[in-house]
Each structure stands twice: as structure tokens, then as C-alpha cells.
Amino acid sequence: MIPFDFDYYKPSAILDAVNLFYKLKAENKTPVYYGGGTEIISRARVGNIRFDSVIDIKNIAECACLNIENERINIGSAVELNKITESNVFPLLADTVKRIADHTVQCKITLGGNILGNIKYKEGILPLMLADAKVSILDQTGRKELNINEFFNKKPMIEEGQLLEKFSIDKKLADSPWYHCKEVKMEKIDYPLITVAAIRYRRGLRLAVSGLLEYPFRSAEIESIINNNQFDLDRDFNNIINALQGAVIKDKSSDKYRLFVLKKLLKAILREI
């Protein structure tokens, strides 16, 4: 039970949603965009967040799109994870989101919610990073299209009131050879120890990781180490560690163990693709 009241709006037009947000804001209200709502509800219940207006975006066609047009895959921010898995339009993404929470919750969590939520792992972003996804965002000034690395750098670069509309992915990249593995402490339904996603595109290996640092990342520096002709995992693993931009997560599992697991996963990636 959520211990406070709020109003609920469910617009069908994307501009209505954005305008409503700014209107409520101007009235000194605290609106939130609402996709699957799984995290909003659970955090509200324990008093971690408070708001007085909810704008549910699931009725907005653009946010609910899941299609392929002109060799580009479009996935709306309000598409539930299980639909991404069942459609299999982007196999790496399908496999990645299939390991977020559990199947029933996947019927509720949306891709946008996974990426914009408070939980640090945000595994849904990994395939999008690898596939150079384009991200469209709306605010009062109109629609903006960003490259994925502009949209996400340690955290989503999205300001209050901006609405994440959809992701668009080049089908060629989505169809590249790929690898995904989520390692957990013990229980399958758990946050990751380490999740890696990788694709091989034009002979180069692209790699994105969640669970190692406080945020999911893709690192050009690490990819250049791995893609070097002379690369040897045992010898060069320290270079990879040194190239990390932040401290390795220590809670729940030690940093050393996470690195141990990372190395095993890198070995598997190099073997598989």
C-alpha cells in the first residue's frame, strides 16, 4: 500500500503528456512519467519517493511502438520487456531483458523504466549501447534525437519533464553476432554480479558491462585493448582493469570477485563470437 495520494492521468497524445507535465509543474505539483511503474510503486510504498501526479505513457502510440521500418528497429520506451523478448526483433536485447527480474515482472517493466529507474544495473541499455541506438526525447521545445552515448553517460542525460519516446536501432547492427551472459551470486532471479553484452561488427568486438561499476558502460579504451591484434586476455587483463573509469562495486560481492567473474566472461566472449 502506497501511503500517500496522487492523481493519475493517461494521455494518448505524446504532446498532451509533455504539456501536462509542464502544466502540473507550473501548478507546483510533482508529476512523474509512469511506464510499467514497478519501481515507482515499490519505492513509493517504502517512502523513498513522493509525487502527487502520475502521467501514464502506455497509451501513447509512439512510446508503445515495436516495429521495423526502413531497416531500423523502433522500440518505444513504454514497451514491456516480455514483448521485446517475444518479438525477438533484436535478439541480443531480447536475451538481455529476459534476465531482468522474473518473467511475470517482465510483463510489467518497460524498457524505458529499466533504463531511467533508480536501480543501478539498467541492463536494458547494454545492447542499445552496442548497436549505436538513436534515442528520441520530447520536451516543450520539441523532439530531439540523440546518439546513445549522448543520452547515457554514467546516467541518463535526461532532464526533468523530458519524455523518453523511443529507441531506434540499425537492423544491421542488431543482426550482428552477439553474446550475452548474466552472472549472479547464486539465485537466478537476482541483480547481476556481472552482465556482459557483446557484438562483433565489422570484425571489431563491442563490449558493454553492467554490475562492475556503479553504472553500465561501454568503453572505447577497453574495446581498443581487446581489438588489438596482439591481445592476450591473461596478459592484458590488468590493462582492462586500469582502463576502468571508476571503482568496482564492492557491496554484496567483493570487487576482486567481480573482476574474477569478468575475466571468465571475457574469455567466453572471445571463444563464442
Binding site: K185, M186, S253, Y257, F260
Partner: peptide, 10 residues
């Protein structure tokens, strides 16, 4: 106890 991969690795 409990015994997960990390515990044995340690």
C-alpha cells in the same frame, strides 16, 4: 555457510 561460488572462490 552459505556456499555460493564466491564463498568457495574465497
Amino acid at each position: 555457510l552459505p556456499l555460493d561460488g564466491e564463498a568457495i572462490w574465497q
